[in-house]
Protein backbone atom coordinates (compact mmCIF):
# COMPACT_ATOMS: atom_id res chain seq x y z
CA UNK A 1 0.00 0.00 0.00
CA UNK A 2 2.78 2.41 0.87
CA UNK A 3 4.69 1.93 -2.39
CA UNK A 4 3.01 3.82 -5.20
CA UNK A 5 1.92 1.50 -7.99
CA UNK A 6 3.04 3.78 -10.76
CA UNK A 7 6.18 5.76 -10.26
CA UNK A 8 5.15 9.35 -9.65
CA UNK A 9 7.62 12.14 -10.34
CA UNK A 10 9.93 12.76 -7.39
CA UNK A 11 8.66 16.29 -6.89
CA UNK A 12 5.07 15.15 -6.48
CA UNK A 13 6.18 12.55 -3.93
CA UNK A 14 8.13 15.09 -1.92
CA UNK A 15 5.01 17.27 -1.91
CA UNK A 16 3.35 14.78 0.38
CA UNK A 17 6.13 14.64 2.96
CA UNK A 18 6.10 16.19 6.36
CA UNK A 19 9.37 18.04 6.52
CA UNK A 20 11.09 20.38 8.90
CA UNK A 21 14.26 22.21 7.95
CA UNK A 22 16.63 23.92 10.31
CA UNK A 23 14.14 23.96 13.19
CA UNK A 24 15.56 26.04 15.99
CA UNK A 25 13.66 26.85 19.15
CA UNK A 26 14.78 28.51 22.36
CA UNK A 27 12.70 28.78 25.51
CA UNK A 28 13.78 31.15 28.26
CA UNK A 29 17.30 31.47 26.89
CA UNK A 30 17.81 27.70 26.63
CA UNK A 31 18.17 26.17 23.19
CA UNK A 32 15.68 23.27 23.11
CA UNK A 33 15.96 22.43 19.41
CA UNK A 34 19.06 23.23 17.41
CA UNK A 35 19.08 23.01 13.60
CA UNK A 36 16.82 19.97 13.49
CA UNK A 37 16.07 18.52 10.07
CA UNK A 38 13.18 16.10 9.98
CA UNK A 39 11.37 14.20 7.27
CA UNK A 40 8.45 11.82 7.58
CA UNK A 41 6.81 10.05 4.65
CA UNK A 42 3.22 8.97 4.33
CA UNK A 43 2.84 5.23 4.49
CA UNK A 44 5.43 4.99 7.24
CA UNK A 45 5.62 5.12 11.01
CA UNK A 46 8.32 7.62 11.93
CA UNK A 47 9.55 7.40 15.51
CA UNK A 48 11.26 10.17 17.45
CA UNK A 49 13.44 8.68 20.18
CA UNK A 50 15.98 10.05 22.60
CA UNK A 51 16.67 10.45 26.32
CA UNK A 52 14.53 12.57 28.67
CA UNK A 53 14.87 16.25 27.93
CA UNK A 54 16.32 15.68 24.46
CA UNK A 55 13.54 17.74 22.85
CA UNK A 56 11.31 14.95 21.49
CA UNK A 57 8.01 16.39 22.65
CA UNK A 58 9.08 19.92 21.73
CA UNK A 59 9.88 18.74 18.20
CA UNK A 60 6.46 17.07 18.01
CA UNK A 61 4.75 20.26 19.20
CA UNK A 62 6.57 22.19 16.47
CA UNK A 63 5.56 19.72 13.79
CA UNK A 64 1.89 19.79 14.83
CA UNK A 65 1.89 23.58 14.59
CA UNK A 66 1.19 24.11 18.28
CA UNK A 67 4.41 26.07 18.94
CA UNK A 68 5.58 26.35 15.33
CA UNK A 69 5.11 30.11 15.54
CA UNK A 70 7.76 30.29 18.26
CA UNK A 71 10.51 28.73 16.14
CA UNK A 72 13.45 30.95 15.26
CA UNK A 73 13.32 32.73 11.88
CA UNK A 74 14.66 30.48 9.15
CA UNK A 75 12.93 27.39 10.52
CA UNK A 76 10.54 25.86 8.02
CA UNK A 77 7.94 23.17 8.64
CA UNK A 78 5.79 21.95 5.77
CA UNK A 79 3.01 19.38 5.67
CA UNK A 80 2.84 18.72 1.96
CA UNK A 81 2.34 22.14 0.46
CA UNK A 82 1.02 23.58 3.71
CA UNK A 83 3.24 25.94 5.70
CA UNK A 84 2.66 24.69 9.25
CA UNK A 85 4.18 27.76 10.89
CA UNK A 86 1.48 29.97 9.38
CA UNK A 87 -1.51 27.69 8.78
CA UNK A 88 -4.87 28.41 10.41
CA UNK A 89 -5.78 25.95 13.18
CA UNK A 90 -8.89 24.67 11.40
CA UNK A 91 -6.90 23.92 8.24
CA UNK A 92 -4.35 21.94 10.22
CA UNK A 93 -7.12 20.15 12.08
CA UNK A 94 -8.39 18.68 8.80
CA UNK A 95 -5.00 17.17 8.04
CA UNK A 96 -3.53 16.06 11.29
CA UNK A 97 -4.60 14.96 14.75
CA UNK A 98 -2.56 14.80 17.92
CA UNK A 99 -2.61 12.40 20.84
CA UNK A 100 -1.04 13.98 23.93
CA UNK A 101 0.70 12.06 26.73
CA UNK A 102 -2.26 12.60 29.03
CA UNK A 103 -5.46 14.60 28.73
CA UNK A 104 -7.45 15.87 31.68
CA UNK A 105 -11.09 16.73 31.25
CA UNK A 106 -12.74 19.72 32.91
CA UNK A 107 -16.35 18.46 32.89
CA UNK A 108 -18.08 15.09 33.28
CA UNK A 109 -18.38 13.98 29.65
CA UNK A 110 -19.17 10.38 28.79
CA UNK A 111 -16.69 8.36 26.74
CA UNK A 112 -18.76 8.70 23.59
CA UNK A 113 -19.13 12.45 24.09
CA UNK A 114 -15.35 12.79 24.38
CA UNK A 115 -14.83 10.91 21.12
CA UNK A 116 -17.52 13.01 19.47
CA UNK A 117 -15.55 16.16 20.32
CA UNK A 118 -13.30 14.93 17.53
CA UNK A 119 -16.03 13.75 15.18
CA UNK A 120 -18.35 16.53 14.18
CA UNK A 121 -20.93 16.94 11.46
CA UNK A 122 -22.90 14.33 9.60
CA UNK A 123 -22.02 10.76 10.46
CA UNK A 124 -20.07 11.90 13.50
CA UNK A 125 -21.84 9.50 15.83
CA UNK A 126 -21.15 6.51 13.60
CA UNK A 127 -17.54 7.56 13.19
CA UNK A 128 -17.14 7.92 16.93
CA UNK A 129 -18.64 4.45 17.51
CA UNK A 130 -16.31 2.96 14.94
CA UNK A 131 -13.25 4.62 16.47
CA UNK A 132 -14.23 3.39 19.94
CA UNK A 133 -14.59 -0.14 18.63
CA UNK A 134 -11.17 0.18 17.03
CA UNK A 135 -9.53 0.81 20.40
CA UNK A 136 -11.56 -2.01 21.96
CA UNK A 137 -13.75 0.28 24.11
CA UNK A 138 -17.09 0.09 22.30
CA UNK A 139 -18.78 -1.22 25.44
CA UNK A 140 -17.62 1.82 27.45
CA UNK A 141 -19.51 4.41 25.39
CA UNK A 142 -21.80 5.59 28.18
CA UNK A 143 -19.31 5.41 31.03
CA UNK A 144 -17.95 8.65 32.46
CA UNK A 145 -14.48 9.43 31.18
CA UNK A 146 -13.23 10.36 34.64
CA UNK A 147 -14.13 6.90 35.98
CA UNK A 148 -11.73 5.13 33.63
CA UNK A 149 -8.14 4.14 34.37
CA UNK A 150 -5.29 6.15 32.88
CA UNK A 151 -4.66 3.57 30.18
CA UNK A 152 -8.34 3.44 29.21
CA UNK A 153 -8.51 7.24 29.09
CA UNK A 154 -5.51 7.23 26.78
CA UNK A 155 -7.29 4.80 24.44
CA UNK A 156 -10.44 6.95 24.49
CA UNK A 157 -8.30 9.90 23.45
CA UNK A 158 -6.80 7.79 20.65
CA UNK A 159 -10.34 7.06 19.47
CA UNK A 160 -11.11 10.78 19.51
CA UNK A 161 -8.00 11.48 17.46
CA UNK A 162 -8.84 8.74 14.94
CA UNK A 163 -12.40 10.05 14.68
CA UNK A 164 -11.07 13.54 13.94
CA UNK A 165 -9.12 12.27 10.93
CA UNK A 166 -11.84 9.95 9.63
CA UNK A 167 -9.58 8.35 6.98
CA UNK A 168 -5.79 8.14 6.54
CA UNK A 169 -6.03 10.03 3.26
CA UNK A 170 -8.12 13.03 2.30
CA UNK A 171 -8.61 14.75 -1.04
CA UNK A 172 -5.62 16.99 -0.32
CA UNK A 173 -3.27 14.09 0.37
CA UNK A 174 -2.21 12.06 3.38
CA UNK A 175 -3.42 12.87 6.86
CA UNK A 176 -1.01 12.77 9.77
CA UNK A 177 -1.30 11.12 13.12
CA UNK A 178 0.95 12.56 15.85
CA UNK A 179 1.38 10.42 18.94
CA UNK A 180 3.25 11.57 22.04
CA UNK A 181 4.35 8.47 23.92
CA UNK A 182 1.15 6.67 22.99
CA UNK A 183 1.86 3.45 24.85
CA UNK A 184 3.55 4.60 28.06
CA UNK A 185 0.39 4.10 30.18
CA UNK A 186 -0.65 0.80 28.58
CA UNK A 187 -0.18 -2.87 29.30
CA UNK A 188 1.69 -4.92 26.72
CA UNK A 189 -1.42 -6.19 24.97
CA UNK A 190 -2.77 -2.71 24.44
CA UNK A 191 0.70 -1.40 23.57
CA UNK A 192 0.72 -3.80 20.65
CA UNK A 193 -2.88 -2.95 19.78
CA UNK A 194 -2.21 0.79 19.66
CA UNK A 195 0.94 0.32 17.60
CA UNK A 196 -0.99 -1.93 15.22
CA UNK A 197 -3.57 0.83 14.79
CA UNK A 198 -0.76 3.27 13.98
CA UNK A 199 0.77 0.81 11.53
CA UNK A 200 -2.60 0.24 9.82
CA UNK A 201 -3.11 4.00 9.56
CA UNK A 202 0.24 4.29 7.77
CA UNK A 203 -0.39 1.27 5.54
CA UNK A 204 -3.61 2.88 4.36
CA UNK A 205 -1.72 5.90 3.12
CA UNK A 206 -1.55 8.18 6.15
CA UNK A 207 1.55 9.32 7.98
CA UNK A 208 2.38 8.56 11.61
CA UNK A 209 4.87 10.44 13.76
CA UNK A 210 5.33 9.04 17.25
CA UNK A 211 7.50 10.02 20.18
CA UNK A 212 8.62 6.68 21.61
CA UNK A 213 10.29 5.62 24.83
CA UNK A 214 10.21 1.93 24.16
CA UNK A 215 13.04 1.11 21.77
CA UNK A 216 11.80 -2.45 21.25
CA UNK A 217 8.43 -1.29 19.98
CA UNK A 218 10.22 1.36 17.94
CA UNK A 219 12.35 -1.26 16.25
CA UNK A 220 9.30 -3.40 15.71
CA UNK A 221 6.91 -0.82 14.24
CA UNK A 222 8.88 2.13 12.86
CA UNK A 223 10.18 2.35 9.33
CA UNK A 224 12.08 5.54 10.12
CA UNK A 225 13.74 6.56 13.37
CA UNK A 226 14.99 10.00 14.36
CA UNK A 227 17.32 9.93 17.36
CA UNK A 228 17.54 13.19 19.28
CA UNK A 229 20.08 14.20 21.86
CA UNK A 230 20.28 17.60 23.52
CA UNK A 231 18.09 19.17 20.86
CA UNK A 232 20.11 17.88 17.91
CA UNK A 233 19.56 15.01 15.53
CA UNK A 234 22.08 12.30 16.34
CA UNK A 235 20.88 9.97 13.63
CA UNK A 236 18.00 9.46 11.25
CA UNK A 237 17.13 6.52 9.03
CA UNK A 238 15.92 2.95 9.17
CA UNK A 239 15.86 1.38 12.66
CA UNK A 240 18.82 -0.84 11.91
CA UNK A 241 20.91 2.17 10.95
CA UNK A 242 19.97 4.35 13.91
CA UNK A 243 19.48 1.93 16.78
CA UNK A 244 23.14 0.96 16.95
CA UNK A 245 25.32 0.38 19.99
CA UNK A 246 27.40 3.43 19.25
CA UNK A 247 24.57 5.94 18.69
CA UNK A 248 22.46 4.72 21.61
CA UNK A 249 25.47 4.83 23.90
CA UNK A 250 26.09 8.43 22.93
CA UNK A 251 22.43 9.42 23.29
CA UNK A 252 21.47 7.63 26.50
CA UNK A 253 24.83 7.78 28.25
CA UNK A 254 24.92 4.10 29.16
CA UNK A 255 26.43 1.17 27.39
CA UNK A 256 23.93 -0.92 25.51
CA UNK A 257 24.18 -3.86 23.24
CA UNK A 258 21.73 -4.46 20.46
CA UNK A 259 20.65 -8.03 20.11
CA UNK A 260 19.19 -9.33 16.92
CA UNK A 261 16.45 -11.91 17.19
CA UNK A 262 16.58 -15.05 15.08
CA UNK A 263 13.96 -13.59 12.78
CA UNK A 264 14.55 -10.31 11.06
CA UNK A 265 14.19 -7.20 13.18
CA UNK A 266 15.81 -5.87 16.32
CA UNK A 267 15.20 -6.31 19.98
CA UNK A 268 16.73 -4.65 22.95
CA UNK A 269 16.53 -5.45 26.64
CA UNK A 270 17.46 -3.43 29.70
CA UNK A 271 19.47 -6.45 30.83
CA UNK A 272 22.03 -5.72 28.11
CA UNK A 273 22.91 -2.45 29.84
CA UNK A 274 26.30 -2.48 31.53
CA UNK A 275 27.20 -0.54 34.61
CA UNK A 276 29.79 2.18 34.46
CA UNK A 277 30.58 4.75 31.84
Amino acid sequence: MNAPLTHAPAAAEADEHLSGRNIRLGLRGKQILDSVDFTARPGEVTAIVGPNGSGKTTLLRCLTGEIAGQCAPGSTIRMGALDVTRAEPWLLAQRRAVLAQATSLAFPFTVLEVVRLGAEGAGGAARARQALAQVDLGHYAERYYQELSGGEQQRVQLARVLAQLDAPRGHHGPRWLFLDEPVSALDIGHQLQVMEIARAFARNGGGVVAVMHDLNLTAMFAQEVVLLNQGRVLGAGAPAEVLTDRLLETAYGCRLRIGVAPRDGLFLLPQTAEQGN
Binding site: G65, E66, P89, W90, A93, S104, Q164
Partner: peptide
Protein backbone atom coordinates in the same frame (compact mmCIF):
# COMPACT_ATOMS: atom_id res chain seq x y z
CA UNK B 1 -12.52 21.26 28.18
CA UNK B 2 -9.82 18.91 26.82
CA UNK B 3 -7.17 21.56 27.51
CA UNK B 4 -5.73 24.34 25.40
CA UNK B 5 -3.35 22.25 23.34
CA UNK B 6 -6.04 19.71 22.43
CA UNK B 7 -8.46 22.52 21.55
CA UNK B 8 -5.87 23.99 19.20
CA UNK B 9 -5.32 20.58 17.64
CA UNK B 10 -9.06 20.32 17.05
CA UNK B 11 -8.86 23.50 14.99
CA UNK B 12 -10.01 26.11 17.51
Amino acid sequence: SLGEAAAYHLGI
